[in-house]
């Protein structure tokens, strides 16, 4: 094949160089593409010429949307902007964006991978007015719990910070919201490794609690648990306003018959959601919480505390604190018998 002169020539043709000639334009290569174009007019796109800067509210909205940005720094800066905008707004005025908008946007960042972002988030949350948090506590708690069980340890630790802040701001709502009590208790027991092994095989002897866990983290966890239990088990110190009960003479205790000021008052009826099991149930009453605590967690915590006390040091001190909380909280609990009398 390819032996004839014609074929040889044909083959050669592909590789022949075009000769350059003086005074002539250079020949275009075979793969040349003509990219020139003609236009009758050139139109510049409109530029915004407004003289006044965007309002703070608009800026905040912009920064809220930037919270999903892929760059850590951008997210952090947006959070910082929001923090300053909130803290610098005058006390009587409403916030540039209502918390109902801010909170759903920022709560996902509890699980953010970057430490800086998370710290900034905590600052932002602390800047928010405390009264507004209560209505969103269940959502926040969900994210917090997701953080507490996260695979990354620093997110787990950070979630405890969030929890402490949340308990400080809206302790009552947290412990009484749906799934807020039992699931959190379970979560804590899981974190501390204090699960009482019921289905354990007889041949496997497992150490109770973590063998070589980080003491610092454990102390922190125990402190958070103590705060949590305090919020849930100790009676609320709400000073009853004497003015309310007293001086509306013909009507007595009207406040009990009025609609509550809380949002979603009938949440405990669970009219529209999926049916709840024991874990997801709302425990709004302190006695209910005590009962459930007694059944589900008390023995495990007591056992765990013993272990921790033996450890001594910082761990022991934290354990002692936790024990006091448990003792105080369960002081007026008489068990099932007590309930019957």
């Amino acid at each position: 094949m390819g032996s004839s002169a014609k074929k040889k020539k044909e083959k050669k043709k592909d590789f022949q160089k075009a000769k350059l000639k003086v005074g002539k334009t250079q020949a275009k290569p075979a793969n040349y593409t003509d990219t020139s174009f003609k236009a009758k007019a050139i139109v510049l796109t409109q530029q915004s010429l407004s003289a006044n800067a965007p309002t703070v509210a608009a800026q905040c909205a912009h920064h809220l949307s930037m919270l999903t940005h892929k760059s850590d720094t951008q997210r952090k800066e947006s959070l910082a902007y929001l923090t300053t905008a909130i803290s610098s707004s005058p006390s009587g005025q409403p916030l540039p964006q209502p918390p109902a908008v801010i909170l759903p946007a920022v709560q996902r960042l509890i699980l953010d991978g970057s430490n800086g972002v998370r710290q900034q988030l905590l600052r932002l949350l602390q800047a928010l007015p405390a009264g507004e948090i209560a209505n969103h506590s269940d959502q926040l708690l969900l994210h917090t719990r997701a953080g507490m069980t996260h695979l990354a340890s620093d997110i787990r630790v950070f979630a405890l910070d969030i929890l402490e802040w949340l308990l400080g701001v809206a302790g009552g709502e947290v412990v009484s919201c749906a799934g807020g009590w039992v699931k959190m208790l379970k979560c804590f027991l899981g974190l501390l490794g204090w699960q009482n092994e019921t289905a354990g095989k007889w041949s496997v002897t497992r150490p109770f609690g973590k063998a070589g866990g980080d003491t610092k983290v454990q102390v922190k966890q125990m402190m958070a648990l103590a705060t949590f239990l305090r919020a849930g088990l100790l009676p609320l110190q709400t000073a009853i306003d004497p003015a309310v009960g007293g001086n509306s003479f013909p009507l007595w205790q009207t406040e009990h018959h009025l609609l509550s000021e809380r949002s979603n008052v009938y949440a405990h009826l669970n009219l529209f959601g999926a049916p709840r099991d024991e874990e997801a149930e709302m425990y709004e009453d302190r006695e209910d919480r005590q009962r459930v605590f007694h059944v589900r967690a008390e023995s495990a915590i007591t056992a765990g505390l013993e272990q921790a006390t033996k450890g001594g040091g910082e761990l022991g001190r934290a354990a002692a604190q936790l024990r006091r909380v448990v003792k105080d909280g369960m002081a007026d609990f008489h068990g099932e018998q007590g309930m019957i009398h």
Partner: peptide, 14 residues
């Protein structure tokens, strides 16, 4: 695994 499973549960709820 238990912790991961809890995590999954929370995510699922969210």
């Amino acid at each position: 695994f238990q912790r991961q499973y809890d995590q999954y549960k929370t995510y699922l709820e969210l």
